[in-house]
């Protein structure tokens, strides 16, 4: 019977470790997706003069993962005619923060960026996108570093912690 408990503990701590490692690994990947998304948005705005609802839906088709879902959400809310872009953007963000590995900082960058969307002429819109991209670039560098440092650590920590608890209990 005690062996069964030990196996349970081991599996669960290992699983937690791997989950944490996955989060660390996914974050730079999703950040890169987000950057591609914003760059495409810039092209849609600068060269296509495409309205936001359409642009968001285009982006959701080009991208993948939670970032694509985010744009899909925002685009759908805009089409359903909410009162402002900001509201649609917030709808998307609340979904994104739950579904992605982004930290508070990234969500905050996006939130501030969303407040400027659709309110300016092309030139200013481009400046805002560039600004958001610069911020995300910094986050990406940090996320890459964190992945290098922590990914393996979380995995081994999970396994080792499981073993430790078992040894203490036996």
């Amino acid at each position: 019977m005690s062996w069964l408990g030990a196996v349970c503990i081991f599996i669960s701590t290992t699983w937690i470790g791997f989950e944490l490692a996955k989060k660390v690994r996914e974050r730079p990947k999703q950040l890169r997706q987000l950057k591609v998304g914003l760059q495409s948005l810039e092209a849609e705005i600068m060269y296509g003069l495409i309205p936001l609802d359409e642009a968001f839906l285009h982006l959701s088709r080009q991208l993948s993962g939670p970032v694509a879902e985010f744009f899909l959400h925002a685009g759908k809310s805009l089409e359903a005619s909410v009162s402002s872009v900001q509201e649609a953007w917030e709808n998307g963000l609340s979904h994104l923060s739950a579904a992605s590995s982004f930290k508070k900082e990234e969500i905050e960058i996006l939130r501030q960026f969303g407040a400027t969307l659709g309110r300016h002429d092309r030139e200013n819109q481009q400046k805002q996108i560039r600004l958001a991209l610069a911020h995300l670039e910094r986050e990406l560098a940090e996320a890459n570093e964190a992945q290098l440092k922590h990914e393996k650590m979380y995995k081994s920590l999970g396994i080792l912690l499981g073993l430790l608890i078992i040894i203490l209990l036996v």
Binding site: L49, P51, L52, S84, A88, G118
Partner: peptide
């Protein structure tokens, strides 16, 4: 504001011209 939002589909930049 609402009228302009709907005219531009919330995207002022699209109305530059």
């Amino acid at each position: 504001v609402q009228l302009l939002n709907k005219l531009s589909r919330y995207s002022l930049y699209a109305l530059e011209e």
